[in-house]
Design a binder for these strands. Structure first.
Lengths: 149, 149
DNA sequence: GTAATTGCAAAGCTTTTGCAATTTA
DNA sequence: TAAATTGCAAAAGCTTTGCAATTAC
């Protein structure tokens, strides 16, 4: 259940000697509730209803803290604010630059390309911090329709 | 020579019924001089010495105009400001998120991956508007050194 | 002369930061 | 109580915009 997830994250923080505050608990709870790809602002808004005093700066600082301790990460999906996740980045993100949709696909889908590129250029793509940007299938189909019309 | 390049770009604008102004000429000249991957702010600074009245907003507006008419494009290289180029995006950008270095590699280096991904997921990566972010060979080597130490 | 363009100042959006007041352990 | 955390307001970084004044055609 969700409470377990929150508790385990807070325990991790505690284990590292980091203080558990009311605000930190609330931010983590909100992230568990939000599930996927939430922005700092969305978290702020979620929390603002019940906790008008929890300031956005605290949300940002808590997210940074969670990231520094390896309990969360953020991805940049093209334009717009960063999106946050609990846990480890375990898949790569495909972000549609037209409709904003985000697909998560298996990391190893790109493994061959990545090693090819590494061999050819010495460059190692990091697919976790920045999404691959492009067009999702729906938007591609729509664009082709528009071209015909 | 550089003057030709500028003249040809301005001619393209004229052909589309767009007015050629002093400022627009100056911005295009600065881009020709700058060559690669220049930011709007860098262009502003270049121009500010000889033309203190040319406002940054005009640089942004001119860049947008050039992009709308297909004479320039911009790429996002991870964090930081967009970088601008005259011409068409004809290669893909590898941006090191550690040192900021940008490599340009041949488009077709990713062709197989892109079509694989398209076939598997329906998603079409756009490598022109957003760079692929990661680590360049130099930074990779340095990181490995640091790990050993 | 008229429509497009510019300078300027302001604001927009996302995020960070300095500092005094509060809270945690 | 000492040290960490928070609220607040402000600023930072990049870019866009409204409007009145200027300029190109």
């Amino acid at each position: 259940m969700a409470g377990d997830r929150t508790a385990s994250i807070l325990q991790h923080l505690k284990d590292r000697g980091i203080r558990i505050t009311v605000d930190r608990r609330l931010v983590v709870e909100a992230m568990v509730r939000a599930g996927d790809h939430v922005t700092a602002e969305e978290l702020s808004e979620m929390l603002h209803l019940a906790h008008p005093d929890l300031h956005a700066a605290t949300v940002y600082r808590t997210l940074e803290l969670l990231e520094d301790t390896g309990l969360a990460y953020h991805v940049h999906l093209g334009h717009g604010p960063a999106r946050w996740h609990l846990g480890d980045p375990s898949h790569l993100h495909l972000a549609c630059e037209r409709c904003g949709e985000v697909e998560e696909v298996d990391d190893n889908l790109l493994e061959t390309v990545k090693s090819q590129l590494l061999a050819a250029t010495g460059f190692k793509i990091d697919t976790h911090h920045f999404a691959l940007v492009g067009r999702c299938s729906r938007c591609l189909a729509q664009e082709q329709l528009n071209q015909v019309t």
